[in-house]
Simulated assay, not measured.
Amino acid sequence: MPSILQRCKEVFHTDNLYEVIGVEKDATQKELKKGYHRKSLAFHPDRVSSEDKEVATRKFQLLSQVYSILTDDDRRREYDDTGEVDEESSGDLDRDWTQYWRLLFPKVTAKDIEEFAEKYRGSEEELGDLKKAYVSSEGDMETILDTVLCCTHEDEERFAELLRDLVSTGELPDFDNFSKENKKKKAARIKKSKQEAAEAEEAAKKLKLGDDHSSLVAAIAQRQTSRARQADDFLSQLEAKYCGGTGSGAGGGKKSGKKSKR
């Protein structure tokens, strides 16, 4: 089985654990929790359609494992000193990461998760993340769409327009991957997005959603509600409501602008 660092490289396009969480190397425990909370809202299996659940669950579990490493003083010190992670003695493979998340954030509802996504889209924070993803991927749109929080293939044209403007003003470099992308590659990506949209629409019909739904989150929330009655609603409000309103919502947590030295 690949190591956690290898899996992070594959899934999050970086093997720097601090960058996975979105914080600096000297982040405090509070900053780590905010960073983990922010990222986990985007990947939580309860906010995605059934078609995307497997990928989201994989990201969510890996993100949670990274957070557990960085909040363990001994494991964090070992990682900082050696750049390696001792996985054999951790017991991470047997952990229920969803339950782990619920214990850390017991009062966040599925509706709150969707509201976070809505506030994030079009925000200055999203723009900052988009620019960072563009530079780190050298303009590869597939990687950009896989990196920026809460985005789907429907955001591609919006992202492309923003990036073209930033490139034209000289704020961002002009990468061939972006400005001279292979037409077949782009066509394949568009085809995939249309297929995903059709699958989502079919799922919505099966769940009897109205025409005014903006995503499948509403349906997922309905299913969660029935289960939650038996478990005292494991989600209920965003971090602002249980951390005193400091650094809440989409603005919580520092973003890493550079790789930490190991």
Rank of each mutant, 00 (worst) to 15 (best):
Gln195Pro: 00
Ser136His: 05
Glu199Thr: 11
Asp155Gly: 02
Leu127Glu: 15
Tyr134Val: 01
Ser236Trp: 04
Ser123Asp: 06
Trp101Arg: 02
Glu199Lys: 13
Gln224Phe: 03
Ile113Ser: 11
Ser168Gly: 06
Arg102Asp: 11
Leu130Ser: 10
Leu145Phe: 02
Asp211Cys: 00
Thr169Tyr: 07
Glu161Cys: 01
Ala198Tyr: 03
Leu130Lys: 03
Phe234Pro: 13
Ala204Glu: 05
Lys206Thr: 12
Ser193Phe: 04
Ala160Asn: 03
Ile190Gly: 00
Glu181Gly: 00
Ser193Trp: 08
Ser137Gln: 03
Glu124Ser: 15
Gly128Leu: 07
Ala204Gly: 12
Asp232Glu: 11
Thr225His: 12
Asp212Ile: 00
Leu172Glu: 00
Ser123Pro: 14
Asp165Lys: 12
Glu201Tyr: 13
Val217Cys: 12
Gly139Pro: 04
Ala228Tyr: 12
Gly122Val: 13
Lys185Asp: 01
Lys186Gly: 01
Glu138Thr: 03
Ala117Pro: 08
Arg223Asp: 07
Ala117Glu: 11
Phe116Arg: 11
Phe105Ala: 04
Phe178Glu: 13
Glu171His: 02
Asp146Glu: 15
Leu103Gln: 15
Lys184Val: 07
Ala187Gln: 02
Phe105Trp: 11
Asp233Lys: 12
Trp101Gln: 09
Gly128Pro: 01
Gln195Glu: 06
Ala231Pro: 01
Ser137Thr: 04
Ala228Val: 01
Lys184Ser: 05
Tyr134Cys: 02
Lys185Asn: 09
Ser179Gln: 03
Leu207Thr: 10
Ala231Leu: 02
Leu145Cys: 14
Leu216Phe: 10
Tyr120Pro: 03
Glu161Gln: 08
Asp212Thr: 15
Leu162Gln: 06
Thr147Ala: 13
Leu104Thr: 02
Arg189Pro: 01
Cys151Val: 15
Arg158Phe: 02
Ala117Gln: 15
Glu114Trp: 14
Asp232His: 09
Ser123Leu: 05
Ala221Gly: 15
Gly128Ala: 13
Leu127Trp: 11
Glu154Gln: 11
